[in-house]
Nucleic acid binder design. Sequence first.
RNA 1: AGGGAGUUAGCUCAGUUGGUAGAGCGCCACCCUUACAAGGUGGAUGUCGCAGGUUCGAAUCCUGUACUCCCUACCA
Length: 892
Amino acid sequence: MSTTLSDRYNPQEVETKTYKWWEENGYFKAQDLSTKPPYSIILPPPNVTGFLHLGHALDHTIQDLLIRWKRMSGFNAMWLPGTDHAGIATQSVVEKELKKQGHTRHSLGRDVFIEKVWDWKNQYGDRIYNQMRKLGDSCDWERATFTLDEGVSKAVKKVFVQLYKKGWIYKGQRLVNWSTPLESAISDLEVEFQQVKGTLYHILYSIENSSEFLTVATTRPETMLGDTAVCVNPDDERYKHLIGQNVVLPLINKSIKIIADTYVDPKFGSGVVKMTPAHDFNDYKIGKTHNLEFINILEKNGLLNENAGPYKGLKVQEARKRVIDDLKKQNLIAKEEPYIHSVGHCSRTGAVVEPFLSEQWFMKMDKLAIPAKRVVESGTLRFEPESWTKVYLHWMNIIEDWCVSRQLWWGHQIPAYICQDCNHTTVSETTPTVCEKCVSDQIKQDEDVLDTWFSSALWPFSTMGWPENTEALKTFYPSTYLITGHDIIFFWVARMIMMGLEFKGDIPFRTVYIHGLVRDSQGRKMSKSLGNSIDPVELIEKHGADALRISFLAHLHSGKDFKFSEQRLEGYRNFMNKIWNAARFVLSHLQDFKTPTEGVRALPKKALLSTYDQWIIYALGEVEKKVESALDADRFSEAALALYHFVWNQYCDWYIEFTKPLLQGPKTEERETTQLVLAQVLNRIVRLLHPFTPFITEEIYQKLPIKGQACIIDEYPTALKDKDFLAFGNEEAATEVEVVKEVISSIRNIRGENRISPAQTMAVRLDVNDDRAQKILGANKKSIMTLGKISQLDIAKEGPLAKSAVALIHVKDVSVKVVIPLEGLVDFAEEIKRIEKTIEKLAKDISNLSIKLSNEKFVKNADEEVVAADREILENSKKQMVQLQEALVRFQ
RNA sequence: AGGGAGUUAGCUCAGUUGGUAGAGCGCCACCCUUACAAGGUGGAUGUCGCAGGUUCGAAUCCUGUACUCCCUACCA
């Protein structure tokens, strides 16, 4: 195998090949029976019609991070993928296709239409799966489930029948959101409210046996055809005397009652509201409490029906015009004013949603909600971030019965069979041949299908073979995490909890991790209409899946919405390139490295380790601890950023630089040892990063001299598991390296601030007072010279300062004075500026600290360590101040 | 209207038990130094929304207030 890597990371080349290799080797598969502890995540099933969007990409990245991390940590990690049949969405897509061929679903008939939808699904249903592969999702594909699969359908029927028998599913007349083009009820989720410019019409209703009129205001005058009362506030002095009397409904001259309800706001409009219980949700409620008549004036297709009298057959908009014209002719319009209000539109067809009274199936929710609340209150089921608990409980407290029927063809047809003879409804899991009541064989299945969310609610167990008690269920239910956005907590998460408790007697998942929604860089929702949606597949092709993944993970914070920025993505693309090049460097310097037989367990000889080796191993241990605790606490960004900084700012910026002289030097045992450390640390870096950036890490891993079979199934490093190697880390060495880094940085600072060209040679003297400092600097002289780009370095006890730039360094108890003679190098003006700037900063610090430390209460109350630390800083600052002031004098 | 969240550097955001404010990007200057210009080195930038309170000490805890955003509902 080649040990070289191309000089720029090319994700496209690597990703397809690597994914295929993982899949062919079965690395994504979990076992139903295993001695490993189970860890499972069920993918929120995307719509089968859908394309992967950025929201999915974020959602999946988190899930894949967890699955890969746990898989590497020795768990039987199972990620179950699936797709949702998405009733309305899919039906609409196929209907649109058919329309091009001059068909409608009605012209084809139900059976043929359903066949066409299945054809479509079989052709395009895997599209989103292939996009998920591009992202690197390590799903157990053999478990992939579709919500209309046979097993799921069986579960759906069983649940429906059981709840029906319990009396928790029932049929009733209710007001629902009605989409007239679909001729179906739609869920609240499918209603989009839009601000619309309308007109508020003030209409006069004459009071019976009086010459007076009541003025009612409405934006939908045509609904007056279905009015069955007018309503005022019971405390409204203007109308108190009229309560109980009647008004005459104009145009159809019908007498309707004046009722009173506190719902009416006397301050709004005229304080009189027309009641149309069959076409308005509030009026419906009031209609129920006041026992009003419900008059439906619409057909399913949105045309007015016979109750509309002369307006029968008109569309709503036409009827509205005609009604207004007719009222105007009778001088019954008191006022017309422009009015902006929000109107619900069908998210699929864009049509205005009509509240429509119809026969629907409902699920009774109050009883189901009780245990579902309890498990969250008791902490058995946890939300992360925790603040969603409140939102969840609030919603569960105001839960209403769920309309589960839809008048569509694509979906789970309701297992209810209506007898054509006695009208009895037989509900059964198996298709009955006769009516259970009158034994007539004239029975017909209810035409409605179930709301898509009905099957989704069963997803955590229907995907694993329920109602059979399968091994998969025993092992993986409840699943460990559910990862989803906050937009579907109520529609989906809550319902899964209720169904899980009812049918499995246990919560469906232990933790619900709620992430924010992906927005554009200006914080707007991504949508087709705004034209601001970004295709993740394009981003992956441009910058690589790893860069996209880590750009999400590094900036994902506590469930807040995520503003996506391509510029940030480029930053992480650069990080990928950085890792790539670091690996390239290391590998090129390991050409002559002999792979140890103990592989990853190979340990260096302590006596041969350099300070830098001991320091980087120590730093590795620190980062391993940090990553573990961050991942354990769901703080993914903290883990990602810790690794980012370790790799870039420690391993690349310093460690690799420190190793260069040795690597470029002759073959020695010390050189071999550093090679071993370079290889071992890189091996760990690659494993630590794998769940975040799987592709690049697997690619590098395969070229490492020290490696196992595959990164994806290698062990995830932790401080405990890695303790033998980490034992070679040394905190003392870390201090020592810190001194060296500080010295180099201050040399660079003086050079930079004085604009001394890097080509200009410079002599530097380091003054020290104690043996330890002397020893440290002596041992690291070569590194300081190379990295500080200096030609001559003296280490002394004390020396002349003359026209020299001076910097004082304190690391723990080590002090160094960096002295750089500037005579002949620069214009002193720059150095004077630098000194003045530093003095200014110091003066502020000294003043603040002095005030603080002279405060007796502070000294008395604060922790001793805090006071001691402040004292030390103050002392050092004062020393430095003296030095700088003296230096200033020398330059003037 | 009810519920939730936010307000920290030009932008996007970190800041876990209160102890002299951080990152990335952007910006300025210098550098094509044989892993990397998708790079290196140095630098500038914040009365942590406002007002009170608790405390020796508040970005952090409490109260109030302004503004922004999200969700649910409503807009006769």
